[in-house]
Nucleic acid binder design. Structure first.
Length: 546
RNA sequence: GGCGGAGUAGCUCAGUGGUAGAGCAGGGGACUCAUAAGCCCUUGGUCGGUGGUUCGAAUCCGCCCUCCGCUACCA
């Protein structure tokens, strides 16, 4: 909300290319961003989280034609799959933006107009080898053979030398400003090694890039005619001669559309510039070099931070992709691990700043070790003992201080890790506390205290209540702190401990979570634990992949 | 080719000058509240190779080998 006094946090993922079904490797980024969004919501920040789909391009027009559909029907179907997958994984964006949304179309056109007014776009000629299957090919990519010049991926299809009149964006004009921006804002591109790569790219010298395609394709109508006049005709339609906006001046713009550029200027002023773009490393250049220049050209600020995550790699380090078929289907994934289990294993097995090889067996091992055995069992044994020894009456945390002081350290490093987008580290610090709590059970042996208590040992009885009170508190803190990662499980943990869960389905609506995450925050409240119920049933390793 | 990064236990990795570490996997044990989970102990490594600096090198320097990232219009 524009007049919201709370700190605001606006974050986005890249929009997914709506040309086929989603895989876990593409949703990985969205799961991670959802965790960050939920953490900010729970902190009490005015959070806006955007995901969505990129739906234009000749490629999609061709694919839809192959399937005998019009492009709109084609992308509608794909978009439904993406939304369904997000829903399955507990991902709750504040808006799912589509580049076919009318406000986005208007915003993209407006940014083109602003660039034109600023003198940053001009008509030029784009030419090069064109592969009918892939579009323009880089000169360095094509192969010279006896039969002529061919595309390495489609050796049987003849390449064509095409030259096309396009609009170009004057990226070269922004070279110095970009270098300065990188110097003055070292946090702009992260991780650091990615920032260095981009800086190296800028220093090689920047070329202008084309931002339109000729002909009336499946895309946003280019709003300006060759003569600089509007391309809109009397009846409101667009002159097909003006062509369409080409990829980046369409796709990237979604971030400002989603902040309200066209529909709600007040909201836009509030949410822009974005605090965080979470993206894959393959589109880093566009987000950290093209994008700031485009925004500056329109008189807008660059985003504050762009985070490039790594890939999930298949066995042997091979990249996962839809075309290779070596990816995990989100439906299968959630069916096996559950929504929270899927989120957890994906984010724990793959460092958010690097690539990692993953395997179904590895995910199962991780699920069993961390979720079933360590965390799930900790809650289960805690609730069981409280049931059995204290007749469900929830004891308050005792004077014991080890777990309490340790929690301060854990929570601190947990919060720092999320702020730094190191989600795997965040989980690691939380789980070090899980291990701590499990060791505490074995060290204190509540079953022996219970036996002594039954025999009339009042000191043992008191100690038993303190120990179980500490364990219940440890479980409460863990369940609540893990909520961004395990949004469906967190309420179940609290319910088993006899606590109300104050946050909504998307993490909004409760008290500032750091207040809740104080040791003993609810020490004075009476309550009864519920019957124990396993949170994460153990999986058998025999379960086969896809 | 240029710039950057990595090579440490079966696997994933931490460790940047002072007697090799963690988690998981493997082996053994004591216990029993619990999802046959948890806890304790433990097997396992000439720290890519080589030459050097140093009292001392996984750690610093030289050379070599291997792998990876970036090196502009598919997204």
């Amino acid at each position: 909300m524009p007049d919201d006094p709370r700190p605001r946090f606006y974050l986005t993922t890249a929009i997914a290319y709506a040309n086929s079904q989603p895989g876990v490797h593409t949703l990985y980024e969205v799961i991670g961003a959802d965790v960050i969004a939920r953490w900010h919501r729970m902190l009490g920040h005015d959070t806006r989280f955007l995901t969505g789909t990129d739906e234009h391009s000749v490629n999609i027009a061709m694919r839809s034609a192959e399937e005998g559909q019009d492009p709109r029907t084609f992308v509608d179907e794909k978009v439904a799959l993406f939304k369904q997958a997000e829903d399955l994984l507990g991902i709750r964006p504040d808006r799912f933006i589509r580049t076919t949304d009318p406000d986005h179309v208007r915003t993209a056109q407006e940014l083109v107009r602003r660039a034109y007014a600023n003198g940053d776009i001009y008509v030029g000629t784009y030419e090069g080898w064109y592969c009918p299957n892939e579009g323009f090919r880089n000169a360095s990519d094509v192969l010279e053979t006896a039969r002529g010049t061919i595309c390495p991926n489609h050796p049987d299809v003849p390449l064509q030398w095409l030259s096309e009149q396009n609009w170009f964006f004057r990226l070269s004009a922004y070279q110095e400003r970009l270098e300065r921006h990188f110097e003055e804002h070292p946090e702009f591109v992260q991780p650091d090694y990615r920032r260095n790569e981009m800086l190296g790219f800028i220093r090689q010298g920047l070329e202008d890039f084309s931002i339109s395609r000729a002909g009336a394709g499946w895309g946003i109508p280019f709003p300006i005619a060759d003569n600089g006049e509007t391309a809109q005709r009397e009846d409101g339609s667009w002159d097909p001669e003006a062509g369409t906006i080409y990829v980046w001046y369409d796709a990237l713009i979604n971030y400002v559309t989603g902040a309200g550029f066209d529909s709600d200027p007040e909201a836009f002023a509030h949410y822009w510039p974005a605090d965080l773009h979470v993206i894959g490393k393959d589109i880093l250049r566009f987000h950290t070099i093209f994008w700031p220049a485009m925004l500056w050209s329109a008189g807008l600020e660059a985003p504050r931070k762009v985070w490039a995550h790594g890939w999930l790699l298949a066995a042997g380090g091979e990249r996962m992709s839809k075309s290779r078929g070596n990816f995990f289907d989100p439906g299968d994934f959630v069916a096996a691990f559950g929504s929270d289990g899927a989120r957890y294993v994906a984010l724990r097995e793959v460092p958010f700043d690097k690539d990692a090889e993953v395997s179904w067996d590895g995910f199962v091992r991780r699920y069993n070790a961390d979720l079933a055995n360590d965390f799930g069992n900790l809650v289960n044994r805690t609730v069981s003992m409280t049931n059995r020894y204290l007749d469900r009456a929830r004891p308050a945390p005792g004077p014991e201080t080890d777990l309490a002081t340790e929690w301060l350290t854990v929570l601190d490093s947990y919060g720092r890790a999320i702020d730094g987008c190191l989600l795997h580290d965040a989980l690691a610090s939380l789980w070090s506390y899980v291990a701590e709590a499990n060791r505490y059970v074995d060290a204190e042996k509540p079953w022996e205290l219970a036996k002594a208590s039954k025999g009339g040992d009042t000191a043992a009885d008191e100690r038993l209540r303190d120990v179980l009170g500490n364990l219940v508190e440890a479980c409460r803190l863990l369940g609540l702190a893990a909520a961004p990662f395990l949004p469906a499980t967190a309420p179940r943990v609290l319910a088993q401990l006899g606590y109300a869960y104050p946050y909504g389905d998307d993490g909004n609506g409760g008290p500032p979570v750091l207040d809740e995450l104080r040791w003993g925050a609810h020490a004075g409240e009476q309550g009864r634990v519920a019957a124990p119920e396993p949170l994460f049933p153990r999986l058998e390793t025999e379960i086969a992949a896809d």
